[in-house]
């Protein structure tokens, strides 16, 4: 059986995630790895929205905030298990994305960017201001997921870092698998068609508004789950998770690696997550360097790293 590129991508991903710990000099790297995987999961959602369908969102951090705060609040106030709180967060995000997406996806380009930005900022503002519920800007504690204790009962004793590395890694592979399947599904083809031309897609019978909305809702669920995982992993969450800069980070990660491709998104997430860790030595210069990297990559490698590098390898043949 010949391996499709989809399976190859997934196998390489899983192998890399499984093999990397053998080269980790200390437990700290598990934590960094888990951070990368969570970011990559959120960015995979952006790939579906921006890379497949060509729609811009500068407000997806709002959904991450909803997912994160669902894990902080639902177990305390509703008595839900944290794992169910993740599902609840995803459902709320999906419903909200459906309601908000309907009117704003009629907009294009910058207008869509601003409308989604406004949505994200409103979510961040509610999280900051409703102190009675969210404890405001100082953040709130998040209960333990409890899965590690269950695994321990089964005789699998992982450190906290190891557990989250493995768990987020598995979530990322599942997320990537869904996204890659979507790419070749009828919905995925419809999305790519409307990316090319909405009018043309409409004339061949694609319900443009409905398909766009689907992409928006799916990507919102990705962001929400990623937000939940962040909250559960840190056992703490602040409204910064829903902030404008987090939205910008997501889009930048996606575009940096190559917005059309899932591996690109993961690479972008990896680079932008590692950058601040490496730059802690030059903490003073962190913003300066981040801004510079964003500009340079976008000017010189417009398509992002992965597509630009692939093109180099393939040469002029294709």
């Amino acid at each position: 059986m010949r391996l499709s590129s989809k399976h190859l991508t997934l196998i390489v991903m899983a192998a890399l995630i499984a093999a990397a710990p053998f080269f980790f000099p200390s437990g700290y790297y598990f934590r960094v790895g888990a951070l990368i995987f969570v970011n990559a999961l959120a960015v995979t959602g952006i790939v579906i929205l921006t890379g497949y369908a060509g729609q811009i969102s500068l407000g997806h951090a709002g959904f991450a905030g909803i997912g994160g705060y669902a894990c902080a609040l639902a177990p305390v106030h509703l008595g839900l298990h944290p794992a169910l709180a993740v599902v609840l967060g995803a459902v709320i995000s999906a419903v909200l994305a459906f309601l908000v997406g309907r009117p704003i996806l009629r907009l294009k380009g910058y207008y869509l960017g601003v409308a989604s930005l406004g949505f994200g900022i409103l979510v961040a503002m509610v999280l900051n201001n409703e102190r009675g519920l969210t404890k405001g800007p100082d953040g709130i504690e998040v209960p333990d997921l409890g899965l590690r204790a269950v695994l321990k009962g089964w005789g699998l004793d992982l450190s906290n870092g190891e557990f989250w590395y493995a768990f987020t890694g598995i979530c990322l592979v599942i997320g990537a698998w869904i996204a890659l399947n979507l790419f070749n599904s009828p919905t995925g083809r419809a999305l790519r068609a409307l990316h090319g031309s909405e009018v043309a897609a409409g004339t061949v019978g694609i319900d443009v508004a409905r398909v766009k909305l689907q992409a928006f809702v799916i990507s919102a669920v990705y962001a929400s789950v990623a937000g939940s995982l962040t909250a559960l992993q840190n056992k703490f969450i602040t409204p910064d998770i829903a902030g404008f800069m987090h939205s910008v980070e997501m889009v930048t990660m996606a575009v940096l690696g190559g917005v059309g491709s899932v591996p690109g998104a993961i690479l972008g997430a990896g680079i932008l997550t590692l950058l601040p860790q490496v730059l802690t030595v030059f903490a003073e210069y962190e913003q300066l360097i981040l801004g510079l990297v964003m500009m340079l990559v976008m000017i010189f490698l417009r398509e992002g790293l992965v597509p630009s590098i692939l093109r180099k390898f393939r040469g002029r043949g294709e």
Partner: peptide
Amino acid sequence: APVVTLIIITIGASIFIRG
């Protein structure tokens, strides 16, 4: 360049100037 790219460039410039 596409709109997303231009948005990121100017946001990058904004972060750079702030830094």
